[in-house]
Amino acid sequence: MAESERVKMAAGEWYTCLDDELESLRVVARDAVFEHNCLPPRQRGNLGPGLKTLLGNAGEGARIEAPFHCAYGFNIFLGDGVFLNAGCTILDTASVRIGKGTLLGPNVQIYCAEHHKEVAGRQAGLEIAKPVEIGANAWIGGSAVILGGVSIGEGAIVGAGAVVTRDVAANTTVLGNPAHRVKRD
């Protein structure tokens, strides 16, 4: 029996996102995100009830401002006290782990999916999922983009608007496109 597209996605193999099972999982995520985004701020608490059940883990005091968007949700793991500001998008085709106390500015985007390089592959919906890990107490500036396969170390700072295409060491600051290390004040 052939492996399902979801199994291939979880294994980090090429899979097609044009799949009924994956689409049904995305519908569940869209419903939970819609619910969260439509709650009055005082009723959201730390997370809307739909997101609490959708996410892989949400530590104590984790907060996500609306609007928020994710692809699946179950691949997102938030440590205690993590804060995602308004407009964050996480395309979590692979695991996204965000360490405790980490702050994401408005409109931060995390993209785990990488599309096929060949036109025919893209037309067939072929993707490969690459995980993202962000250590504890990192600060990701507004509108930063983090690509799949990247690890950002504990205490690192990613400047606003940076495009992170490779790993960032702990306690360093990066900025620019592509992101590069700068001396820390």
Rank of each mutant, 00 (worst) to 15 (best):
M1G: 12
G59A: 02
R181K: 14
C17V: 14
D92S: 10
V33T: 03
A162H: 04
L47K: 07
G149D: 07
D31W: 09
I76R: 06
P178T: 12
I146E: 06
C38D: 11
V150G: 05
G79C: 01
S151Y: 03
N107W: 00
A120T: 14
R30H: 14
Q123F: 01
E13S: 11
K183E: 15
V174P: 09
R97H: 14
N85E: 11
A129K: 07
D185Y: 10
A113W: 12
G12T: 05
T102P: 10
V96C: 05
A29R: 07
L175H: 12
K100I: 00
G125H: 09
E21Q: 13
N107F: 05
A32R: 11
C38A: 14
R63A: 11
T172K: 14
D20A: 15
I128V: 15
L22C: 02
N85D: 12
A66K: 11
F34T: 12
A156P: 09
Q43G: 00
N46Y: 12
L126S: 07
G121I: 01
E127R: 08
Y15M: 09
F74S: 13
N75F: 10
E21C: 01
G121K: 03
V150H: 07
I64S: 03
T93M: 14
C70S: 05
R6E: 11
Y111M: 13
G50M: 10
F77Q: 09
L51K: 11
R97F: 01
A113M: 06
V168D: 07
A62L: 08
N85L: 04
T53G: 15
G61F: 01
G79H: 01
I146F: 04
L91H: 04
C112I: 05
L39T: 05
I90H: 04
C88V: 02
G155D: 08
V7Y: 03
D80G: 02
I157C: 04
H115I: 00
G61H: 02
F68E: 00
L39Y: 09
C88Y: 00
G161W: 05
E21S: 06
G61K: 07
P178D: 12
R97L: 06
R26M: 12
H36W: 03
T165R: 09
G48P: 05
D80T: 02
T173G: 06
S95H: 13
V33M: 04
G87D: 01
T102Y: 10
V145Y: 00
N57V: 05
V27I: 15
G45R: 08
G99C: 04
G141E: 06
A138Q: 07
G141H: 09
T53C: 08
F74D: 15
T173S: 12
A11P: 00
E60G: 10
V108K: 02
R44H: 08
Y15V: 08
L25Q: 13
R42N: 13
M1W: 02
L91M: 14
A2W: 06
T93K: 00
L54S: 02
G48Q: 02
L91I: 12
A170M: 04
R181T: 14
I140D: 08
L84P: 10
R26W: 06
I110Y: 01
P40I: 09
G159F: 04
N85A: 13
H180D: 05
V132C: 08
S4E: 05
N37L: 03
G61E: 06
A2L: 11
D80Y: 04
E114I: 02
G141S: 06
C17Y: 13
A170H: 12
A120N: 10
V82H: 10
V96F: 01
S143Q: 15
G159S: 07
E5T: 01
E3Q: 15
A156N: 06
